[in-house]
Simulated assay, not measured.
Amino acid sequence: MGIAEVFQRYFIDPIKYNQGYNIVNTLTYALILGLASLGVYKILKKLNIKYDNAFFRALMPYMILGAFGRALTDATIIPRTYLTVTPGIYILVFTITFSALLITHKLFEDWQKVFLYFGWSLVGIEGLLLLFNIDKVDFNLTVLKYFIPLATIALITIYLLSKKIWLVKENSYLFYAHFYDATTTFVGVDFLGYWEQHVVPRYLMELTGTAAVMYLLKFAVLIIALYLMEKLEESESDKELMDFIKMVMFILGFAPGTRNLLRMLMGV
């Protein structure tokens, strides 16, 4: 099999025919994400941009921007192209976000506010797109009947775990984000007939017969990753790099969870 055939089979066809992920593209995308994150980290450090609460808040609308845009694509409000579905939409939103960050940082003294407001204005445009195409959406509020109680149980579970496990206590926002994502997957797959696109979660769901396994998977991955990161920090590794990685980890939980929830609410 030639390079062109491999690329077609493992990268183009899964997007074109909505086949989900496979081992090859999953590992490739993970590698690209890692390298891109490291590159962004080095640029932001050179610009002396700190990863404080204000910066984190300023990023929130851009996380919602990608999730909302992906849901609007599923609802056929935004045309389905290679740039409006995964992984293209991640590249598109990253380009918008990073460009806005660099431009506002260079031109404005109070750049974080401008960056924040610009992000929310883009989300507002998506909201208008939904409003103007409301006839294309068949809202399904039944989702909330499952989501609200399960999300509440998940949040309480994390709170109780934070009383017993130090890593959970110190990184509770990461567990909240990923349990939120796990809840949307659980609701979608077990109660509403959706299917899981990612390789490992799909295998575990088939093995156990329930998407509730996502809670255990998320918890195990986070605990192992955070434990290793703590060990690296103790060996005098760059604490700012660890904080940046945690920010990326949060995005990887919050953004897909928001896309899942919006998609289900739109009934698509």
Rank of each mutant, 00 (worst) to 15 (best):
G2V: 04
I3A: 14
I3M: 12
I3C: 04
E5C: 06
I12V: 08
I12A: 08
I15L: 11
Y21I: 04
Y21K: 07
I23C: 13
T26R: 02
L27M: 07
A30G: 02
L31Y: 03
L44H: 02
K45H: 01
K50V: 15
N53T: 07
P61F: 05
M63G: 15
L65V: 00
G66V: 03
G69F: 09
D74V: 07
D74S: 13
A75D: 07
T76Y: 13
R80D: 11
G88K: 03
G88E: 07
I89A: 00
F98R: 00
S99I: 03
A100V: 11
L101F: 06
I103C: 09
I103K: 06
T104H: 10
K106I: 11
F108K: 09
F108V: 02
E109V: 12
D110T: 13
D110M: 07
W111T: 08
V114I: 15
F115E: 07
G119M: 04
G119K: 00
G127S: 08
L129V: 03
L131C: 12
V137N: 13
V137Y: 00
L141R: 10
Y146V: 11
F147W: 02
I153G: 07
I153H: 03
I156F: 02
Y159Q: 13
L161I: 03
L161M: 09
K163T: 06
K164M: 14
K164G: 06
K169Y: 10
N171I: 07
N171R: 04
F175N: 00
H178P: 09
H178D: 09
T183H: 04
T185P: 05
V187D: 04
V189T: 04
F191W: 01
F191K: 10
G193W: 08
G193Q: 05
H198C: 09
P201S: 10
R202S: 13
R202D: 14
M205K: 08
Y215I: 04
F219D: 08
I223H: 00
I224V: 13
Y227A: 14
L228K: 12
E230R: 11
K231D: 09
E233R: 15
K239E: 14
L241M: 08
L241D: 05
M242A: 11
F244I: 07
I245P: 01
M247V: 11
M249Y: 08
F250Y: 12
I251F: 15
I251Q: 14
L252V: 08
L252Q: 15
F254E: 05
A255L: 12
P256I: 14
G257A: 00
G257M: 05
T258Y: 13
T258D: 08
N260P: 01
M264R: 10
L265V: 08
M266Q: 03
M266C: 05
